[in-house]
Simulated scan of single mutants.
Amino acid sequence: MDIKNSVAVVTGAGRGLGRHLAAQLLDRGAAKVYAGVRNPDALDLPGVEPLRLDITDPESVVRAARAAADATLLINNAGISTHVGLADGDMADIRLEMETHFFGSLGVTRAFAPVIAANGGGALLNVLSILSWIHLPGYGGYSAAKAAELAMTNVVRRELAPSGIDVTALHVGYMDTEMADYVAPEDKVDPAWVAGLALDGIEQRALEVVVGDRSRAVRAALSGGLELLYPDLPAPKAL
C-alpha cells in the first residue's frame, strides 16, 4: 500500500490519535484525507476534507461512504471509554462500547470495503488496544468490545483479501490524549509516534502493529498460561 496519492478516510479525526493520523497522511503525500467527525464545523485541521460521520448511526455511515466514493484507505479510529464494569455496570454503557467499537467499526468497514474494492483495492487499519488481549476490571465494557473488534479484524482480513484490501491491526496502550488524561505521563506514549508506526505498518502490509513495551509484553504472554496475564489471580492448580 502506497500512502502517497492514496485517498484516506480517518474516523474520529478531530482529536487524539485520529488527528495525528490525518495530519501525517497529508505529510506523506496522500491525495486526499477525509476527516470523519460528528461536527465538521468544529474541525480545525488544515488540508483535510471534513466528513460528517457518526459511526454509531448507520444512515450517517452510508452517507459518508457515498460522499467519500474515491476512498482507497480506511482507518477505523473512532472510539470511547466509559470505564464501565461488566458484573454490575450500566448496561447502556456496555452496549454503547459494543455499538461503537464492534458494530460501529464493522458498519464502517462494510460500507467502505466495496468502495475501496471498486477503486482498485487498498487498505484498512483498525485501531485496537492492548485491552483487546488483556481484560481488566474498570475497563470491562471497553475490553469486551475491543476483543470483539479484534475478532472482527481477523475475520474481515481473510474476507477482504480477494478484493485486494489489506487489513492491519494496531495494538497500543495508554497514549497522551484526552481519553487518558487521568494517567501518569510516564505511563503514556506519544500519539504522533504511534501514528507514524501505524502508517509504516500500512505501507509494509503488516498484519499487526504492536506499539510499546507493555503491549509487546502482553502479546508475548498470550502463548503462556493465564497467570502470565493475570498474576494477581490464585496460583493455578496442577491438572
Rank of each mutant, 00 (worst) to 15 (best):
M1S: 06
I3T: 01
I3V: 00
K4A: 09
V9T: 01
T11R: 05
T11S: 03
T11K: 03
H20D: 02
L21Q: 05
L21T: 10
L25S: 00
L26F: 03
A31L: 08
V33M: 02
A35V: 06
G36E: 02
R38E: 14
R38F: 11
N39S: 15
N39Y: 11
P40M: 12
P40Y: 12
D41K: 15
D41M: 10
A42R: 11
D44A: 14
P50D: 09
R52G: 12
R52M: 14
L53I: 05
T56S: 06
D57H: 08
E59D: 15
V62E: 15
R66D: 15
A69W: 12
A69D: 11
A71T: 15
T72P: 09
T72C: 07
A78E: 04
A78D: 00
H83V: 05
A87D: 15
D88P: 09
D90A: 06
A92P: 00
D93T: 07
L96E: 14
E97N: 12
E97D: 14
M98R: 13
T100W: 00
F103W: 15
F103C: 10
G104M: 06
S105V: 13
L106R: 13
G107E: 13
G107P: 06
A111P: 04
P114F: 00
I116N: 00
N119M: 04
G121R: 05
A123R: 05
L125W: 08
N126R: 12
V127D: 09
L128R: 08
S129M: 06
S132P: 13
P137Y: 04
G141I: 04
A148Q: 12
A148K: 07
M152H: 14
N154S: 13
V156A: 02
R157V: 07
L160R: 01
A161G: 08
A161E: 13
P162C: 11
G164N: 03
G164H: 08
T168L: 05
T168R: 01
A169G: 10
H171P: 12
V172N: 10
Y174T: 02
D176K: 03
A180L: 08
D181K: 07
V183Y: 00
V183S: 03
E186L: 09
D187A: 12
P191N: 08
V194C: 04
A195T: 11
G196L: 00
L197I: 10
D200E: 01
G201I: 11
G201E: 03
E203H: 06
R205A: 14
E208Q: 15
S215W: 04
R219Y: 02
S223K: 11
G225W: 06
L229R: 02
L229K: 06
Y230H: 12
D232Y: 13
L233V: 13
A235L: 15
K237E: 15
